[in-house]
Design a protein around this nucleic acid. Structure first.
Lengths: 158, 158
DNA sequence: ATAAGTGCAAATCATTTGCAATGTC
DNA sequence: GACATTGCAAATGATTTGCACTTAT
């Protein structure tokens, strides 16, 4: 994630805590530093591992409790990729309307934006009598370069 | 669901079983009858209840095992609506490309199709070097009639 | 001082699985 | 008869929670 975006997200979280009269603890700081130092999707367990590398005192319970605060404050989005555990996406604060393409061949996840889709979504919502507030779009796809050349090189698949 | 679509889905499932040399048991028949007699989204637990009304011998284990077969054969789609349990959507065999709009006010789920979105998805996939195989789009929205008149009447919210 | 936050271990709860009995082909 | 399928009850595994101690404000 870009440095400014990352720092902005951390600041927003501190603001969120203050506004709710919640406390700015060592563990919460370590966890948000970890969350916004990556632009990968991650699981609760991965976050626990990473955070513990920085501070052994971070516990699984606090990771889950902080993940809840981060999703409530809309700085982190919960994602379901069909696995029995959740993934978390730290890129929404920088790209609030991005979508996901998941490659069935290499499991790689590509993020993309589309103004066009956003516009159509709003039109459709209006036609149905609703105001669209947010969206989740996941495309499942196969890798063209794999099919053509037998390997996952080029822009696709990595 | 329309009668023909419903019957077609059941037939496809029987074919699927035969092709895989799996057996056409009483319990599986009761479960698919139940699944394709509704066009609502449902949970495993609801399906168990409904199936048991028809045949007390149906067990939770068989419901889960049959749900797996139904999703594998692509006749039923698993959906994540942010709850700790999964929902199942029986309408994909009739409308393979439909999307969902979830109303934040009344929790109603509206299904809709859009050729336009499908086209854009394919274009974007191509540009990224992939062939799009399937998609999941969920819009989260608020109800206009509720905002205007204070009640959820009209086409929205029911 | 006070109330929020923490780690730990136990609890929860949807889903999965081992197994002996049963049913389908 | 062979082997898939079933129900049951126990296991699993991600996430949540109660509690006594600790820490931020």
């Amino acid at each position: 994630m870009r440095t400014e975006a990352r720092e902005a997200a951390k600041r927003k979280f501190i603001d969120f805590l203050e506004k709710k009269k919640l406390r700015n603890t060592d563990q919460r700081r370590v966890i948000i530093d970890t969350v916004f130092d990556t632009d990968e999707h991650f699981t609760a367990e991965q976050l626990l591992d990473w955070a513990r590398e920085k501070d052994r005192s971070v516990s699984r319970a606090t990771v889950y409790r902080t993940l809840l605060l981060l999703t409530e404050s809309d700085l982190l989005h919960e994602m379901d990729f069909g696995k029995p555990y959740k993934f978390y996406d730290p890129n929404y604060s920088d790209h609030p309307n991005h979508h996901h393409l998941i490659c069935e061949d290499c499991e790689k996840i590509v993020e993309f934006d589309s103004e066009q889709i956003k516009t159509i979504e709003e039109e459709i919502g209006q036609k149905l009598g609703f105001t669209v507030k947010s969206q989740k779009l996941q495309l499942s796809a196969t890798c063209d370069s794999l099919k053509r050349s037998g390997t996952c090189d080029g822009i696709s698949c990595h």
